[in-house]
Design a protein around this nucleic acid. Sequence first.
RNA 1: AGGACCAUAGCUCAGUUGGUUAGAGCGCCACGUUGACAUCGUGGAGGUCGGCGGUUCAAAUCCGCCUGGUCCUACCA
Length: 991
Amino acid sequence: MDKTYQPEQIESRWYERWEADGRFAPSGEGEPYSIMIPPPNVTGSLHMGHAFQDTIMDTLIRWRRMQGNNTLWQVGTDHAGIATQMLVERKVAAEEGKSRHDLGREAFIDRVWEWKHESGGHITRQLRRMGASVDWSRERFTMDDGFYKAVQEVFVRLYEEDLIYRGKRLVNWDPTLHTAISDLEVENREQQGQFWHFRYPLADGVTTDAGLDYLVVATTRPETLLGDTGVAVNPEDPRYASLIGKFVELPLVGRRIPIVADEHADMEKGSGCVKITPAHDFNDYEVGRRHGLPLINVFTQDAAILPQAEAFDIQGRPLPEIDPSLPQAYAGLDRFEARKRIVADMEAAGLLEQIETVNNTLPYGDRSGDVIEPLLTDQWFVAVESLAGPAIEAVENGDIQFVPKNYENMYFSWMRDLQDWCISRQLWWGHRIPAWYDAEGNVYVARTEAEATAKYLEQMAATSGKHAVALKYLKDKDLLVNGEVNEEGISKLTEDFEFERLTQDEDVLDTWFSSGLWTFGTLGWPEQTPELTTFHPSSVLVTGFDIIFFWVARMIMLTLKFTGEVPFKTVYVHGLVRDGQGQKMSKSKGNVLDPIDLIDGITLDELLEKRTGNMMQPQKAKAIAKATRDEFPEGIEPHGTDALRFTFLSQATTGRDIKFDMGRLDGYRNFCNKLWNASRYVLMNAEGQDCGVSLEGQGESVELSLADRWIVSRLQQTEAQVTKAMEEFRFDHASQALYEFVWNEYCDWYLELSKPVLWDDNASIEAKRGTRRTLVRVLEAILRLAHPMMPFISEEIWQRVAPLAGKAAGDGRESIMAQPWPVAEQEKIDEQATRDIEWLKGVIVAVRNVRAEMNIAPGKPLEVLLTKGSATDRERLEANRLFLAKLAKLESATWLDDPSQAPLSATQLVGDMEVLVPMADLIDKDAELARLAKEIDKQDKLIGGIENKLGNESFVAKAPEAVVEKERGKLKEYQAARAVLLEQRDKIAAL
RNA sequence: AGGACCAUAGCUCAGUUGGUUAGAGCGCCACGUUGACAUCGUGGAGGUCGGCGGUUCAAAUCCGCCUGGUCCUACCA
């Protein structure tokens, strides 16, 4: 083995080997355990959030696999509608100077597929670098054929049950992307805005109680004035009671609009009057519905002013009786330009009362960055009410559990106030909605055009002779079979019967509609496949809290509906990975860390280029470059995947955001190095030597030392601890338990304790064998314990160590991946050995303390005296002379029967026993007296505290006996320590 | 405005049902190179557990209020 740990050399090699050997596929034996990866964008790249998430999933899967479960980690990618379409649009624009409309729908979609084939492997390669043991043989894509089938099936069935409907509704419209987006894709940003107060003249000579002939309304969006269809006042408002049912004359347009009474109007705010624009505001839409006000749309899809408005009733039916004319001056103006002009015109007309500056929050599209406009459009919706009930219940009754539990509240509060889900998007990239229209605009929802055509014929035949004839003809000719008109039938229809072909809906489905089917769609549904039976419901979903609404809630609803099962039994929710300062990582802030750079390292120059090159806001480049130079003056060193994974795990606490800590990453890289070097030591002392283990695993006669029994005992406890932590999803505890055992016990103590045995010419063959066997077996177990967290280094070392530990090769389990997870054996826990070792450590630390305090060279052999020891102390000394001599560097350790004969010494306590290092004339009197005074003071304080407690009658009376006893014990201990210090002080003072 | 979460050493964080001399890693200080490892070893300094009040024999831990931070929801007509 190399002297230092070189991760890059081992990582790619092992991953390829595992994959080639088919180690990731389900074993087919044991209790099923499955995780569905949250599908990353197919053309995306791996960010810190993925790396974190993937580490957790891989750790769980590797752990369960070792425990003997039949594990499936389902992998796949998402087509990510908007994100991917925008990316390809930009690429096409940059490379060919063409828009998607220049190309046309089909050609554009071909480009997207090309791009998918070109770049789709990027993220999967990165997943491999993380060590993710996903089953690549089952990789899926949300737009592959099988998945498409599941999507269609779900859509059609929901439609048939009236749970999907189409209608003209107000939606969040993105004027840049020209599509509806969901509430969840809207980002509210606060900013300073203006609030215009306008006068709306009262019609028919009516006046207010105050004698005014106008009402004052206020708005932050004056351009919507053109679509006003009412003014609301509060029904309780005495100021306007007499005006309810009267009219105002809408300025600039001249429309007469009613004054209605509605709770929505807040008497406390402004004038108490509110303009109502049902076609351009969600609240006004509701007011309009309550009062039967018409909806007047004044915007184009670009959010520019229409030359002529469009009027509808609440059902979305056109209202021809309403005069649609708008002032021509605004026709074609962008909404913000129109706003300026309208304000100016109002002012000119003397109708502008006041302009206020206010802080308000505006909705922005999180993809386009454009201001979202509520717009009346034809869209498809899922009626969620009947789906939400069972989805809430599943969490309430514990079929699905959130970890940590408090996310359940977040889930409930969202689910209990659910709006119908708008699932149509006016995009090209995605699952096209399986709905077809005939020439009259009637809709036929079906799995295929053939099926839709059949439905069309059947439906129309009932009322139309022409259709009935065509239907009969096709049936007679066997061109209509099983509810589908085949290709030939369709061409017959269009040619012989002169029907127009049905046209498919132009819209595609919201990406989350398809990813909502992920857990069962990937397993072959609607077919009842063996995989579906075995692996569904999945065991755990690992996801960020930010997509509980987008994804988790919808998965639960759709999966319950179509499989009758929950999609997963546990939802492990993790937080966001932030930078070291707690800032969200973003390209524009220039604080993004790439997991691959942490693994492989990156030079400062490359990092600077990555962070400042190709920026949206180049003016920030300088500040970013400076911050980057300050934080990473030498760039980033390579750390390896194992260290990165271990860092994530150690920071994975309880669902809170994590601040990624470079210091920890360094620390865990060092931990890998520590493990590496400990293994080197073990191999140097065991390879080719008698370890008391034959290849058949038969032990030969061995003698186990105290240290051997102790480390084996501690190993059992560590195994239990790590397992418990994994079961509780406390990866921080699991990683810490392993870290502490390996470093603080195995390396710091056990390896050191093995040296005296192995290097002592007088030690017996059996003792040496026992120590070698323990060294090897404990290391072998450590590696298995570490493997789910650190797959690469554990495998690399295990290959060398396993044969020495009697693990046979050639049995199909020659990878650590196929080894059993360590199970703690109660009978190997040795309390006595633990106490004895604690004593030994106590003496060694006592001597080290003296050396440090007295400035005695670490290597100088010492002659120590022991006094006030019990029979047990004497036994322990005799049993451990060898260890003591070596680890504390003692020349000798001698019992002093009469404590009063002790020479002037530095003294330390181990229990009641005193360890004396004679100091002769080496002592600096003043310094030592000062040190002792400080120590005595410390003990005095401790003693005082306990005496207070014990002097408190109610403490003694009410506290449990055990607690009181413990305090008494402590008191004795402190008093003894104090006595030693006093004695020491007196001796020195007397010099 | 309502709600959730958080506040422990210079930094990043543990601290399960109240009882520990409040812990770890990094950083800091001192010492240390012959036999696994300087990506190391040994020893050490450093915290009135955000503030105030309460419950209790006992509070970092339970309750209330306050302050500061993060986030979510709503409103902003």
